[in-house]
Design a protein around this nucleic acid. Structure first.
Lengths: 201, 201, 201, 201
DNA sequence: TATGAATGAGCATTCATTCAT
DNA sequence: GATGAATGAATGCTCATTCAT
């Protein structure tokens, strides 16, 4: 029906990033198992093979997405983490630092709905060790735990538990926020809940 | 490959429930998109067609699972809900009632790892409206919100927000608990966090 | 264009043997690498998936073909081998036994052009160890060498070399015969050449 | 995957001959159907398109290989053939000439394992008329037959049959030699067998 | 001369499903 | 109630080839 595709030659960097963005969107909708290379190629107006030219195969594509997300996150969050850690260390106010960290992460989470959704959906799937993103999420979780624990550590009596509560709030609130982002302000509410948890009203 | 299957004729009720259990396990591992009728049939030592004899098709199977889970939940939780509501209404202690509710749900959650995992994985996938379980989770969430809000409602100043916090704790903690159930006691920790949130230490 | 395939349900045994025969034909034409599951399915008037229902995958199909060929060969040749060995042992006439063996094999070779062609083409491909039929041909060759060597052994001065000559004649003549089976009589010529090689004119 | 290839600009003649050699190797391993342009390009450390720049397409590449082989063979064998023919004609010793020819060909065969393997594998595949090398092998075979027949012709009673035996020995022994070139000396054994066939011990 | 981007066609295989038995 | 045969439609991926640079 539709004649031969026009051979469009895009700037590779643009193409690559277009694919990455579109993939984050689709996987955010259907999960890794539910998404198909075909569907992604179509959305990128690319042939099936043309897409694989960039990422080799489905698994590698996923890992490339995670790498990309990590890279961007590092870029944005790392300086903030450094600053908060520094400040917390000097002031000795662990709770304050944890609150600021919570705010930074929540802000980042609310900033890009697509990315957040992608990570949320994937995290569910990736609980199973055989999932190609399983290890990635494991490491990521460990890092977050460490981060909060070290921020709280010096001060709070029960920092491991508190860390769990805070991470739970983050995840749980994110889940609710993804259902309807207009129902409440993610950053504000995460902070409010955290204040309660830290007895810091 | 494997020799001709012996035509085992099980009691249909037993078979059905065996399939349900096995399906909960597999979908809990791979999600709905990632699981295959074939894999389920194999685990049930049933032919592909033999399995579909019970549930018609993949979608119907999923809905049957959800129905079944709802039924069992109703059976166990409904009386407790009634009791807690009654007690809370009489005592006027909304926070206490909410805490008891939290405990009841957390207990139920910790009770059956497979079911909990199934629900967690599915919940991620089902955020997308096109997912066959989307509506089911929507209704379920609404009910939970209503439940907590009504329990807290009369007493707490900001019950909608508190409800959100509590549900977040529930979900978030469940997620962490699914990673490693030996790291902490789900019921205790949910309660502890809730007490902090309710300023009820 | 051509409406939905009529769902023809053949006797499984018939189907299986039809597939085997057709596969031997196609692989005999294009080799294992050159043949496609699709092409075979078409010739069997079966869907792609319908074919794989019987043999699982391409490699397994090939091994099944080789098994089948071995089975049939065993059936036909084994009694002859036994008889020739017995007779050779009693008469002490190793050359005569070798000649008879040659005749038996050549007869078998000339009997079914398709099978012979299949084996010839495959033998070329299977020289490479990575080929799925490599081991099979290795074993088969060893057996043939042993067979001739043991038949000749007691009598001939240089039986390993003579065995090589005879096997070479068999293979080489078979190759020529496959080009044009009407050019000469495979059995007669194999025997004539063997007589020369054994100095038994 | 691998970083951007360095654009190496080799002497075209060197490149071409490198490709030819590598192609002979790969096709000798997997046959024409089993070999891929991709694999060849990789082994030549060339891009896919870079390779086809030299040979246009897969079929043309094959024909170029055969041409090249023929050219080299001509170069080496033609003078020998002329000499043997001349000598045989003058001496009237057809058998001797045939033996010398056999030696020359066997020597050539044993000289370059890769080329021999290539020809052996291809010959199997090329029995089918649709194979791109079919005609080439047909002509080649005819020439060899003519060559031996004419050398033997004047003297031997049954030169067409003898020619067949000799060619069979050549092919068959080559096949065995390719399995394990250390098991026997190809030239010596071909000659020994030929002497027996020619009753010329 | 050589590349990377891109494609259409094809590959083996899997999947959910149907159907006659 | 349960099976094996069978299918159409995918699925991820590979292949030979083209094209602009």
């Amino acid at each position: 029906m539709s004649g031969p595709r026009k051979r469009v030659r895009e700037d590779p960097k643009v193409r690559r990033s277009q694919i990455v963005d579109e993939a984050i969107r689709i996987i955010g909708e259907y999960g890794y198992y539910g998404f198909t290379v075909q569907a992604l190629a179509e959305r990128c107006q690319l042939s099936n093979a043309g897409l694989l030219h960039y990422f080799g195969n489905k698994d590698d594509l996923l890992l490339a997405l995670l790498d990309e997300i990590e890279r961007r996150e590092e870029e944005v969050l790392a300086p903030q983490v450094a600053m908060i850690e520094e400040k917390g260390f000097q002031s000795g106010n662990g709770k304050g630092a944890a609150l600021e960290m919570m705010a930074a992460i929540a802000r980042r989470t609310a900033e890009n709905r697509e990315r957040t959704r992608f990570l949320a959906v994937l995290q569910g799937e990736a609980m199973e060790p055989s999932h190609p993103a399983h290890d990635w999420f494991g490491l990521r979780d460990d890092e977050t735990v460490q981060l909060f624990t070290s921020l709280l550590g010096r001060e709070a009596a029960n920092s491991p538990a508190l860390t769990r509560y805070m991470i739970s709030i983050l995840r749980g609130m994110t889940g609710l926020w993804l259902r309807d982002e207009n129902e409440f302000d993610l950053v504000e509410e995460c902070l409010a809940a955290t204040r309660l948890l830290l007895n810091d009203a």
